[in-house]
Design a protein around this nucleic acid. Structure first.
Lengths: 165, 165
DNA sequence: GCCACATACCTCGATGTCAAGAGACTTGAT
DNA sequence: ATCAAGTCTCTTGACATCGAGGTATGTGGC
C-alpha cells in the first residue's frame, strides 16, 4: 500500500534527481505518523474532557506514585515546556480541581503540585482510552513486527535520550 | 541501550500493573523521536536562515515543479494548516522576497503563489542540509534496517493517508 | 554574620496558530 | 438573465506558548 511519503519521495526524485532522498523514507514517515497520532490522541482524550497538555501533566504526577506530587521544576523537565507555560497549566488544572498547590515543607521558595483524587481517576481513565486507541492503530502489525519496530526506534531515540540534547 | 521510553514504560508497569502498556513501546517512541527531529530540523534550517514553516511552504512549491506555483488552497492541503495561518505565512514569505502572489488567470477570486528565484535556491540548499542531518541520525542503522523500518512505518501511515483522516 | 550568587516560581509582552466568518467571485439550475 | 449555493481567500478575536526578566528564598565562601 502506498502512502503520502511514497508520493513525496517520488516528487523529489523527479525534481532533484541529483539528490539522495532516501533518509526521507524513514524520517518523514516518523514525523507524519507523529502528527496523525497527535490528532488521534486529541480525540481519545476529548472523550474524557481532557486536553493533551492536561494528560501530560496529570500522568507525570500519576507515574510519580503515591503521594502523586512533584515540584513545578520536575514537571518542567518531564514535559519539556518552559516555566511560564507550566505556571499557566498548573493554574488551570488547579481551577478544575485536578491538582492542588502545596507549600514545599523543606524549601520555602518551593511549591509542590499534588494530584487530587479526581485528577488521579481522570488520568487513569484517559490512559486506558489512549491505550485502546493505540492498540487499534497497531492492529496492522503482528506482535513480532511490533517488537522489531520498537527495537529499531529505540536505536534512533537512545542517542537523543542519553547524550543530552 | 536504554531510552526514556523504557523508563516510562517501567514506571507505568509499576503504577498500573493491571494495564497492558505495550503499545507505548512503539508509539511513544514515534512521538518522542518526532520531537527530537523537529529540534534537529530547526537547527539545520537555521544555517540557511529559514524557519521550519518556511521550509514547508517553499518545498511544497519546489516539488510542484516548473513554474513552481500553487494556489493557497493547494498549500493548505499539503501543509495541514488552516487558511488564516497560510495567509499569514504567504505574507511573510512575500515580504522576504521568497514568494510572490499572482492573480489566477483562470479564476478571478483566486491567487497563485509562486516561488521566486531566491526562494527556489534557498529551498534547494535547505533540503540538502536537512538530508545531511537526517543521514547522520540514521547512521545508527544499516541499510537493510532502514528499509525494514521504512516498510513497517508505511504499514502504520498508509491507513491515515488513504482512508482520509 | 555578611554578601554575592544560585535557585524556584511567577509575571508580562510578543508571537503563531486556530476557528469562525466575511467578502468576492463562479457555477449551475431555472 | 437571474439567483441560490458553493468555492476560495483573507480578516478577526481568542488562546496557548515562549523568552526575558522580577521577586523571594536558599547556599557557600570569607
Amino acid at each position: 500500500m502506498e502512502d503520502e511519503v511514497d508520493r513525496l519521495v517520488a516528487a523529489w526524485r523527479r525534481e532533484r534527481p541529483d539528490l539522495d532522498v532516501e533518509p526521507l523514507e524513514v524520517l518523514s514517515r516518523v514525523s507524519r505518523l507523529a502528527r496523525h497520532l497527535d490528532r488521534a490522541r486529541r480525540l481519545a482524550f476529548a472523550e474524557h474532557q481532557l486536553e493533551p497538555w492536561e494528560f501530560d501533566v496529570l500522568t507525570a504526577l500519576r507515574r510519580a506514585g503515591n503521594p502523586y506530587q512533584l515540584s513545578p521544576g520536575q514537571l518542567l523537565t518531564q514535559t519539556l515546556v518552559t516555566s511560564g507555560t507550566m505556571t499557566n497549566r498548573i493554574d488551570r488544572l488547579a481551577k478544575k480541581g485536578l491538582v492542588e498547590r502545596l507549600p514545599d515543607p523543606s524549601d520555602r521558595r518551593g511549591v509542590l503540585v499534588r494530584l487530587t483524587e479526581e485528577g488521579r481517576d481522570r488520568a487513569d481513565q484517559a490512559l486506558a482510552g489512549l491505550l485502546d486507541q493505540e492498540r487499534a492503530i497497531l492492529g496492522e502489525l503482528s506482535s513480532a513486527q511490533r517488537g522489531e519496530l520498537a527495537g529499531l526506534l529505540r536505536q534512533l531515540t537512545a542517542p537523543f535520550d542519553n547524550i543530552p540534547g
